[in-house]
Design a protein around this nucleic acid. Sequence first.
DNA 1: ACCGGGAGACGATACGTATCGCCTCGTTCC
DNA 2: GGAACGAGGCGATACGTATCGTCTCCCGGT
Lengths: 204, 204
Amino acid sequence: MADNRPPDASRRSESARRAIHDAALALVAEVGYPRTTIEAIAARAGVGKQTIYRWWPSRAAVLLEAFVGLGERAAGQSGTDGTQAFPDTGDLAADLKAVLRATVDELNDPAFEAPTRALAAEGIVDPRLGAEFVQKLLEPSLQLYAARLRAAQEAGQARADIDPRTALELLVGPLTHRWLLRTLPLTHEYADAIVDHALRGLAP
Amino acid sequence: MADNRPPDASRRSESARRAIHDAALALVAEVGYPRTTIEAIAARAGVGKQTIYRWWPSRAAVLLEAFVGLGERAAGQSGTDGTQAFPDTGDLAADLKAVLRATVDELNDPAFEAPTRALAAEGIVDPRLGAEFVQKLLEPSLQLYAARLRAAQEAGQARADIDPRTALELLVGPLTHRWLLRTLPLTHEYADAIVDHALRGLAP
DNA sequence: ACCGGGAGACGATACGTATCGCCTCGTTCC
DNA sequence: GGAACGAGGCGATACGTATCGTCTCCCGGT
């Protein structure tokens, strides 16, 4: 029979949790996502399969949690408040270019690319995981764009009659498009071009 | 031993090919992509598994070919030359809105959504399939945008100093972003907003 | 005779479930 | 206050199922 009782989280082993995270990330980097099976993760982490099945609904959920934890640790090192800072030098175009260029570098980094692609792909097919992916990994960054764009509106650097949400997608959308679909290489020049065109517009 | 000799394509059974296409499309629509296994396709098509393995490298390749065939048949019905027409009424904004709205409708159509999502997800992880997906399904549409934008430049409706490729991605990128990541619902209003903002720009 | 096609057996994984002892807790009873 | 006692998570592993990709086997058309 299936055990439908929810496990007691207070008795959960933190060491097993971390070992599973580490094993998942290592395996994705070493052998790729398709071969990062639950059995392989369990073996590598020195953990029983049931310990994974007890706490996570799917292989992708394990990787997502591990990856989010990785990001949090990285963010905790540099900043004090945990949220990355979005530059505001008063020059909107320059600030956006700086951030988009940094995003380009991150997306081109093989260490980030493998797990991010795997999670994005899984999220595209599975709405539940997709929502979690967006909420935990993507949305926090997008909110920083929105805040910067609102500041720009108040400072008169951007039209006041636009929805910051739509404006932000005009910048991030093309970058994501090119990266996910690999239509053309993702470069700093492309990031700059997007910002220039988005701000000035395509009309004469 | 593995049979490395390429099979003789001239003796290939066209009826088996079409039966496999139909079975793949029907299964994706009925039970979803994960359960559209090669064995299920073979059984449904009344075909031996080896017949699939002989001609296609992967399950995704089967579905991609079937889906492309579907699109070609649909295009062949309406137009005479096989390529969809991109409107050119002289009003660039109106033309772009019409096409983006049509794209929104297509992406929101469940019959198109399931296979397209599955193929996009597979292509994100597998570069070979991704390239084929882009070349066979996406690029033909994008070329129509590029052509319309070049016409707009010659007619003075768009800045002459922009690369049509980048301009096109400014329009298509946000739409794809929202659809793939499901951040917010995909509506006609959103399509219109993208066109307006892309043409006018975000700067005051 | 050759070769593609239908059918399906076959070994190899990976899945998800079910137990088995082991260990660590908090509780209870003297 | 210290020992006995559940409860429950943990490592480990056996189990049945599903799918993979390969390998025959025989049939039928050319």
